[in-house]
Amino acid sequence: MISVKNLEKSFGKHKVLKGINEEIQKGEKVVIVGPSGSGKSTFLRCLNLMEIPTSGEIWFEGINLTDKKCDINKTRQKMGMVFQHFNLFPHLTVLQNITLAPVKLKLKTQEQADQEAMKLLERIGLADKAQAYPPQLSGGQKQRIAIVRSLAMNPDVMLFDEPTSALDPEMVGEVLELMKELANEGMTMIVVTHEMGFAREVATRVLFMDDGQVLEQNTPDKFFSEPKNPRLCDFLSKVL
């Protein structure tokens, strides 16, 4: 579904990604872990070209995204992204946050979009907040709404960039719970996170990144029980 070929990214002289090759299949839940500054967020942001790769190729559903002729806006409709800081639109109501993109991109009529958005809100138990504005909501509510905002586009894959890192501890659970539901429904997910419990429970594959490279990857069982790379052993000893 997604294949990454020899991906490199530099910010000025600083090389953040040093040649990454990766294949992600439909239905996989890939969790990326690693110390901060390891390039895991940059890697994720390269997948939908939030960051423009310095070199290498990214293919999504048979389209080369790094090709200049590719219409990235079209592709991004199929790749949902959830951010660390939620990035809800504070000047719009919750409902408008969810319906803005589908309506403006002419994928749905306003009526259709409203209906489907209400269904999504009911599902996460926030239907009563439809007319509220984001500043009135808690962090956990904001992030769950940010997730359904992406879902309203019916994406084929969801990218999560440290979705729980900016949350108060007691709100982490509700967001992870929603992500688990998505995973169970078969959504293809790529998640950058520090939540090792989530990785262990939900991931089909865990990647360890450090210094701009994928140093080790395995199924969650083996990843946590039999780490081989010394840097991964070191990392796990600190976070577990």
Binding site: M50, M81, L88, F89, K104, M153
Partner: peptide, 18 residues
Amino acid sequence: IDKGQTEAGRSLGLTKIQ
């Protein structure tokens, strides 16, 4: 305006101008 606002908009497939 925070850069995250632009990123969120673009990540949904909206064009720069939208």
